[in-house]
Amino acid sequence: MSAQRETTTRSERPALTPLTRGNPAALDVFSARLLPREDYFSAGHRACQGCAEALAVRLIHKVLGRNTIVATATGCMEIISSSYPDTAWKIPWMHVAFENAAAVGSGIEAGLRVLMRKGRLPKRRITVVAMGGDGATADIGLQALSGMLERGHKMIYVCYDNEAYMNTGIQRSGTTPFGASTTTSPAGRVSIGQQTWKKPMPAICAAHGIPYVATVNPSYPLDLAEKVRRAQKANGPAYLHVYAACPTGWRLAPDLAIEIGRLAVETGVAPLYEIVDGRLRLTCPTPKLRPLVEYLRPQGRFRHLLSEDHKDELAVIQARVAAEYAELERRAAEDARR
């Protein structure tokens, strides 16, 4: 344990670039002191210790505020927040099934829009949010999400990516990283674990031509808050991809959930960026990436990668992380010149 902690204690952190830089239109600048005190995803839910996903839900709904309606896919956040007769939700919330949160959210958005237009509901700004885990978003619910984005519903879709089907017991999903050991992609004598690369959800969503796409991470709460506010103000569908550490599924000490989120950014595994009307901007540029092993070491799901047997594969993964980050930097630089 102490060895792990040592690897994650460091003095130099890359600085966040405030979203206002180069974005004079962004007037919402959050500081810790200015974050709303109210919570709409309340305490007392049943999430595991150290669940960064629950933290992200709480932060996101702090920013979205009370005039928000949520459609949730089946999954961890649904079961931990809603067991009848309890609910953690202080805002209207609806769960229908696993693969259809985007469709249910589309319906809520369209329903409110037509009722306001016909004068049957008072005209007001209500934010509709659909949310799901990575399985609900990238696998079983990808079609419904694509439909929602293509039809242009003015709402937010939030994918809480903890990189496997955690609710059903840590099965691999389309966003499980290469080499991770899960219960359906176990590392074994002849397998490294997950043998496919992470499905690029933000790029898939951005390819629909929607006005706002961003990656967020609860280890960077102010960056998260500003992006949530921009998603809320977007004139069309917005997609937020949340890096959501899962201590239970990642076999990570619960008190390292925030730390691992920072390491994910600093190693280039989960870069923070936004794509506004097709222009990509890194919001936490990390010119010098930390070695990947610092990110892998604290997590049981990757421990086998650190053995001598997987030296070559580890180098391949490290190279891919660096290449993908370099591509983001290139794209950001190009878009900045546009």
Binding site: I69, A71, M94, V96, A97, E99, N100, A103, V104, G105, S106, G107, I108, E109, A110, G111, L112, R113, V114, L115, R120, L121, Q143, A144, S146, G147, E150, R151
Partner: peptide, 23 residues
């Protein structure tokens, strides 16, 4: 609102959302 959904699964899912919204 005529919502041209991408499947019947989504048709019924959208209907759940619209009906719950009061439409």
């Amino acid at each position: 609102e005529f919502i041209p959904v991408e499947s019947e699964h989504s048709a019924m899912s959208v209907c759940c959302g619209t009906s719950a919204a009061g439409a």
